[in-house]
Design a protein around this nucleic acid. Structure first.
Lengths: 192, 192
DNA sequence: CTGATTTTGTATCTACAGCTCAAGAATGGA
DNA sequence: TCCATTCTTGAGCTGTAGATACAAAATCAG
């Protein structure tokens, strides 16, 4: 009854996420997006309404892909302490392997947008809140398991880990120094 | 022998720093700069060559004003441990009082620019390196004074503090939650 | 096949970013 | 006072961002 799309919108959002992640919102033009998704402006705007709307979808996709991956890993099997260590190590490794220096898309969004942009602002908060909550529940699990001091303030420790991973990702942009980044991770873990 | 400038270029760089700090590089237009400095485009370009060149000067000014202030405070009188605590507290307070949500201009620059921009990249690295070095030497002083465990890795602790203050500033952009930010600061200090 | 409907590609629009330029206005030395 | 020089004003240039218009093309129910 009607012509079907010549591309997969879902896969297109993935590609858009990569472009926005690497170049930021202001640093990405509709032409770049069109080139990356392999479609013209007609299709782009017909499918996604506006550059900003596509960015929102890309950031949501980032949450679903990257953040949820971290959360599920922390909620996974094994010793709580070891899970936290591995999660932090994965972030350090990702920062070092990140040849394009994309950093964390949520942190990038936090810096590029003001809180006047409600949609982006709430998405960013959600990403940070979920990460912190995942750290916290894993820490509490570790406390129940006797791996982490039960007297410690789990919320405060989770906040420190959240700050540390964001600090690591920001600093890695300017200077991806393995020794320094590892030291940050190692020392934060020692606080547990 | 020649007409003198109708404005103070040095004061103009200060104002430009404020505008870039609050809006980012891409988010700042020559018209905004002209309005903030009270000069027309002719004077602007006559005095500062290009938007990018003015940004470089603004970022240098940020280093001279903000970073040097932190370093001098850490190098100042009083107990090393107390100096570090106060320095971190000042950063938390500044993040909470920052109604415009400007964050740290160096972190903003690290995220907005890639390392292809050599001048900005080196300025940002210098800011981070100097901050870390100041933390480190204060920690070492604290170790000599017996306030901090002499067996601890001063470089690693300094790296953690650097990551923490950057994490605090990034997270404060999305959610300036006093309890959370204080918890980050407090917990990082406990690692000393 | 037909036709109602949606998608696509090309051309193009408006607005503004980033910058330049020409003409006039200050300046201080001679 | 005149002059060489530098600064200011503001119109306006070039290029592109972000988006739209619209005709042609594809789809599938009947």
């Amino acid at each position: 009854m009607a012509r079907t799309k010549g591309f997969d919108p879902d896969a297109a959002v993935d590609k858009a996420m990569e472009v926005f992640w690497a170049n930021g919102y202001a640093g990405t033009t509709p032409r770049q997006l069109g080139a990356a998704l392999g479609i013209g402006p007609g299709s782009l705007y017909n499918a996604f309404t506006s550059k900003h709307a596509l960015y929102e979808r890309a950031l949501r996709r980032y949450y679903e892909r990257e953040t949820v991956r971290l959360i599920e890993f922390l909620d996974g099997p094994g010793s709580p302490r070891a899970r936290i260590r591995t999660a932090i190590d994965l972030i350090v490794t990702a920062a070092l392997d990140d040849r394009e220096r994309r950093g964390c898309m949520a942190a990038n969004a936090a810096i590029e947008f003001t809180d006047e942009d409600d949609v982006v602002h709430h998405l960013v908060r959600r990403i940070f809140d979920r990460q912190e909550a995942a750290f916290r529940s894993t820490i509490e699990e570790g406390q129940r398991a006797g791996e982490i001091d039960p007297e410690a303030d789990a919320a405060a420790l989770a906040a420190l880990l959240l700050a540390t991973i964001n600090g690591i990702r920001v600093l890695a942009k300017a200077d991806p120094n393995p020794a320094r980044l590892s030291a940050m991770a190692e020392t934060a873990l020692r606080a547990l």
